[in-house]
Design a protein around this nucleic acid. Sequence first.
DNA 1: GTCAGGTAACTTACCCTAGGGTCACTTACC
DNA 2: GGTAAGTGACCCTAGGGTAAGTTACCTGAC
Lengths: 203, 203
Amino acid sequence: MTEARAVGTKGVPREERETQIVRAGTEEFGKNGYAGASMVEIARRVGVTKPLLYQYFGSKDGLYLACLHRAGDRLTEGVAETMAAEAEPPERMPLAVLSAIFETFDNDRYAWKLLRDPTVPSTGEIAGVAIDYRYRLDGFALVGAAQLMRSRGLDDDRDIEAIAQVWTGVVDSLISWWIDQPDQDAAAMTERCGRIMRNLFGW
Amino acid sequence: MTEARAVGTKGVPREERETQIVRAGTEEFGKNGYAGASMVEIARRVGVTKPLLYQYFGSKDGLYLACLHRAGDRLTEGVAETMAAEAEPPERMPLAVLSAIFETFDNDRYAWKLLRDPTVPSTGEIAGVAIDYRYRLDGFALVGAAQLMRSRGLDDDRDIEAIAQVWTGVVDSLISWWIDQPDQDAAAMTERCGRIMRNLFGW
DNA sequence: GTCAGGTAACTTACCCTAGGGTCACTTACC
DNA sequence: GGTAAGTGACCCTAGGGTAAGTTACCTGAC
């Protein structure tokens, strides 16, 4: 009889358990933000208790960092690749990047939210890492915005800066909407975004 | 000698003090979200202690509600007016609404953030009020998006929904950027947005 | 004028809970 | 019997919330 036991090992190897925890944590942190998320709630989702999270990740910050790194690395790599591959015209870049993001996070839609979590503390290691990822992400957006503007003979730095910030906000909104539409897969989202951009902007 | 005293009345009438507190609260809640904001910090900003906030507003929720109502009412009224006044073509609506928002909140830039605070609890009175304002705001966005799409012979409901959500996200991003640019006044922001839209979309 | 006392504007010092974090112990398997 | 996986029961602090008191001012009685 291998019935569920309240105490003792459940036979799940550490690596696998850690993955489960990071996935649950990503969802919880993504939904409620660093400040709003609770460790016992994350443990409960995984079907485990709080001390195990602390044994594996040391602290709330430790777990958050693990989630953040996983999300941030996948995202920055994916975007960097896409932007390197995609050539002219700059109007095609947004859809290409969106497609990459949708494909990367189809089964992990809250991951993006971690990179824009407004509730992370403003000091400490988390702050540093979060700022670093945001900085890189903003960098991509700035490059894209600059290419787009310059292709039209414009180069007001603050316009470019504003456009870049709006762009990351647009991605954020699309992902928020996507989270509420579980039936839409990555391909459907890409298609929808392409259609909208063609119709509204002629891009 | 009317030196500052640590105890006793400071001679500031309740109404004026309440206004100060709501302004400070709006900024603090806007910056850190409901969850991240601290009552003592808000009190400290005003130069007063925590119990006074509780005497005047009853609870953290009470103060938050006061801030939320002030921001929400001003915003929804302003937008409703603008959308009623502004006629065809639908491409002009976005800039008109942006202008109204910038003018309304030029000296109170964090107010908008309250309407999109992701850290408000999901139950209770605050949740209800917040959802109500968001619902109204989304309603405006949906109307605008529908007009825009239909003027081009399109009417996919989910496209319209996605566009509406992106639009509120765009406003959010612009305001975030604006908060970091204290030297830009409302007129400058409107002008910048108009220029960008003309250049990028031909609107 | 001045002096009691009522009231509005405050504060100090405290309570209480949620949630981060830890310790010592238990079970299962090799 | 050693080790990895896991837990119940606890500690501690930050922050929401409160009770009881303190100061300044206004008002009317004398």
